[in-house]
């Protein structure tokens, strides 16, 4: 029985990371009806930003002398990487998406794939393709609860993910920028006529989504031990499936989808065969698109002709 609960805990922590990335997909889709394929690479570069920030702040010195990295500095790493990735997200939007925003919907999809491939290969060139061990930004502490092992890192993943998600929900519901986002998402032209700065709103969406992906990247590095320049490809795709599963464009849906995908993957790997770990995610995608294309929490929107 403890094995089962262990798999559930592992699945929830993996799912929280998917959820953080899925939020970026779902926000951008909600506003631009664009699948931002470069989002997986923002996640990867977020993990690398955290890696280099932690090195710059001397994480090796602390771990070599057996001390744990101060929590304040860990927070600096997290927020710094989030800020850098927000900048990156806004840059991608300005270079790859804004110039083709009025073009047919296929065009920005193709520039998105181009941006994704460019960032992947640039990272291979800059960081070398070798996997790197992630620095111990948080020292690992283990607790045993009735035979189930929980580490503080898994707890941190869960807590950081939940806090960021609630924060995002409040932001979208309560603030003017959030309200502008919802307005742009409903009808971009009408929003512009009401005096909303559409470009600024889209920039804010990319910045927030990318910052969340960076947080996901750092948590992923801590949990999965190594990072590499191609880590964003499969993880990004799975997060995208999570967004579709929850109902793309729907923020709570992305969270539910992420957690469900994480659990499905972990339970498949644990009880069926690890060979089907990736297959199950895409099987879910096929099933949901056939049975309920609007997603679990999505609502059917009438397309205006």
């Amino acid at each position: 029985m403890s094995e089962f609960f262990q798999q559930i805990i592992n699945g929830l922590s993996l799912g929280s990371i998917y959820a953080l990335i899925a939020l970026g997909y779902t926000m951008v889709y909600g506003i631009l009806k664009l699948i931002n394929f470069a989002h997986g690479e923002v996640f990867m570069l977020g993990a690398y930003s955290g890696y280099f920030l932690a090195s710059a702040l001397g994480v090796e010195r602390y771990s070599a002398s057996g001390q744990s990295f101060p929590l304040g500095l860990a927070l600096v790493v997290l927020l710094g990487a989030m800020a850098l990735s927000a900048l990156l997200g806004v840059t991608i939007e300005a270079l790859a998406y804004r110039p083709v925003r009025s073009a047919p919907r296929l065009t920005p999809l193709i520039t998105a794939i181009g941006a994704s491939l460019f960032l992947q290969n640039a990272a291979v060139l800059l960081f070398t393709p070798n996997p790197r061990p992630y620095p111990p930004i948080l020292r690992e502490v283990r607790f045993t609860l009735g035979g189930v092992i929980v580490t503080n890192i898994k707890l941190a993943i869960f807590v950081v993910a939940i806090v960021l998600m609630i924060g995002l929900h409040q932001f979208v519901q309560r603030t003017w920028t959030g309200r502008a986002m919802r307005a742009v998402s409903m009808n971009m032209d009408a929003a512009r006529l009401m005096g909303i700065d559409v470009n600024a709103t889209i920039r804010a969406t990319f910045a927030i989504g990318s910052a969340l992906a960076a947080a996901g990247g750092i948590l992923f590095g801590l949990d999965q031990i190594t990072i590499n320049p191609l880590m964003g490809v499969l993880t990004g795709l799975k997060a995208f499936v999570a967004a579709v599963l929850g109902g793309i464009g729907n923020i709570p849906g992305a969270v539910v989808g992420g957690l469900l995908i994480g659990l499905a993957e972990q339970l498949t790997a644990g009880y069926l065969s690890p060979d089907y770990r990736d297959a199950i995610t895409f099987l879910i995608l096929v099933v949901i698109l056939v049975l309920k294309p609007e997603g679990l929490l999505g609502v059917v929107r009438q397309e205006k002709v």
Binding site: S2, E3, Q6, Q7, N10, L14, F220, Q224, I225, T226, M231, E265, Q266, L267, A269, G270, Y271, P274, R277
Partner: peptide
């Protein structure tokens, strides 16, 4: 692969 927790958990049992 980067996540091995499912396999390790099954082996631990």
């Amino acid at each position: 692969d980067t996540d091995f927790s499912a396999q390790v958990t099954a082996i631990k049992a």
